[in-house]
Amino acid sequence: MAENILTPEEIIKRGELVFKKTKLMTDNELSYCPGCGHGVAHRITMEVIEELGLEEKTIGVAPVGCSVLAYEFMNVDMQEAAHGRAPAVATGIKRVYPDKTVFTYQGDGDLAAIGTAETLHACNRGENITIIFINNGIYGMTGGQMAPTTLPGMKSSTSPYGRDINMMGHPLKITELIAMLPGTVYVTRQAVHKPGLVRKAKKAIKKAFELQQENKGTTFVEIVSNCNSGWKMTPVDANNWLDKHMLDYYPLGDLKG
């Protein structure tokens, strides 16, 4: 069987297409750190939009955080939003354009700290939007500060001796809260640091966008991700740490729907 596996050189020589970047990702160089999960999360989100034929009716919202520049990479109509306010912005879009496909792409500080009210209320109203929630347990863009989802004992620049839950409170499992709200129709937790998980996450994102087309309510996809820069680890170590610690506190799988 081994002789049937092609080397990269042979693939190029034979001109067989095994992977093609979706046209809904621009050619701009990603601003994310090498090893960061954002790039994969961006790509599979855009692949889903292309595969479902939603390119001409999609409006995305990216609020403050590392992904505030998502509009540089996602080749659909995009709005940048203030920190935490993306679900309110998306509500405004969806209410005046109920037939468009609207999604937000938010980090944990944005969604689970400063934007908690906007997130919970948009989900509780059952806005027909899709929320992609990147949870890497840290504020990446501002330089590695403690996030609402930072694990107990985890070090950050504002918890340099580790998160002390007596002083700093507990990591917030906001996805569990959101799953309890009657306005949500599909709530799931995924990851993208292994090929198998990427495929599952893409399937989940696809389901979320499909349900949005049926106007069934809010769809919510958490992606537990890494931040090797903020965590001060190599990409490989960060992925191993994610696997061992983050997934222990934030177990993968569907919470609803």
């Binding site: 306010r85 309110a88 912005v89 998306a90 509500t91 405004g92 879009i93 354009y97 906007e118």
Partner: peptide, 23 residues
């Protein structure tokens, strides 16, 4: 469309989102 938001913060950001659509 008339919608009662959860706060003034949310209301003005709903305005932002909808205004950005040319409405």
């Amino acid at each position: 469309v008339v919608l009662q938001a959860e706060s003034e913060l949310a209301a003005i950001n709903m305005v932002y989102g909808a205004a950005a659509c040319g409405k």
